[in-house]
Simulated scan of single mutants.
Amino acid sequence: MITRDTASFLQAASATAPDFGPLTARAAFMVAPDGFRLAEQSAADNRYMAQADGFNAARASAQHRDLQRAISQVVPTVCFAGDPETPDALFPNNVFGTARVDGQARYVIGRMRHPVRQREAGRADIRGFFGDVLGYAPVDLSEQPHACELTGALVIDRARGLGFAGLSERCDEEGARLMHEAFGLRATLMFDLAPGEYHTNVVLAVLAGRAAVICPRGFADPSVLDAFDALYGPHAIRLAPGEHAAFAGNCIALSEDRVWMSAHAGRSLQPATRDAFVAAGFTVATVELDAIEAGGGSLRCCIGEVF
């Protein structure tokens, strides 16, 4: 089911068992920030982006390598070359995603809102990696008209097959429905993001199926937060505004015992928030990504997951 009705969603979601798939990805992929600079089209609806003079391409490239090196200690991590014609391509999880549906592996290609990002969907090397090397079947949403920026717009609980689709200019209701079907989910809740928010994964993360990290100000309707409390309490971790602004909500678990976020996000964490991660069974690991965050995304945005 896919719905805007929180009560109906909770009724269905509460009955799901954590047997949909593995809790975390078996590998990761990244795209190097070659030609990293301000993408003016993306800046039109991403308030987190810095001005043009705030971009440091060399520092972003070095930090990106540090990130790959760090997470490679946890999962195999492939990094594709960047393209100066696609300056936002270092955030590949918006364009390419993977899933296993009825035991069959597939890769999903999203439909980006802005033309500068739509170019990324045509990359033959990434398509070839998933299709020809890994043998995943394609589900190509890139040519239809509805914006659906994959795991930027759709946060997925991989354990139970649940989706949380934040609607904005980057994802409409039809786009959410297409992603729900493409990832083969059991139930998806749609909701409006607060004005000024562009992606769900900046304000919400689900960690290894047992915890949720929530930025309350990121949701237009506060009643949606009750769904996270019901599903993930006592490990529904609500972030303060300063933690939200520092990208602490843009985090990811690549194993069952560690949550990754940027060093800036880590420094923003209040003691109570750190205690909440510990109570949920996670240690916090960080990588310095201030140059990359100038591009309006943070650590989770840089990581595509291979399931």
Rank of each mutant, 00 (worst) to 15 (best):
M1H: 07
R4Q: 14
A7L: 07
A12R: 08
T24A: 14
A25L: 06
D34K: 11
F36R: 05
R37K: 15
L38H: 10
A39E: 08
A44W: 05
Y48D: 10
R65S: 06
D66M: 07
V74D: 13
V75R: 12
P76E: 11
T86W: 08
A89H: 11
N94S: 10
V95Q: 13
V95F: 10
R106V: 14
Y107T: 00
I109M: 07
G122Y: 01
R123L: 06
D125V: 08
D125P: 06
G128H: 06
F129C: 07
A137Y: 02
P145Q: 11
E149W: 03
L150Y: 04
I156Y: 03
L167Y: 02
L167E: 10
D172L: 02
E174D: 13
F183L: 01
R186V: 14
L189C: 03
L189V: 05
M190T: 15
Y198F: 15
T200F: 04
N201W: 05
N201D: 15
V203N: 10
V206E: 01
G209Y: 01
R210Q: 13
A212V: 01
V213P: 11
C215E: 03
G218W: 07
G218S: 09
D221W: 06
V224C: 14
G233W: 14
E256D: 12
R258N: 02
S262D: 00
H264G: 08
A265K: 02
A265Y: 03
R267K: 11
F277A: 03
F277C: 01
T283Y: 03
A285Q: 09
D290R: 03
G304I: 04
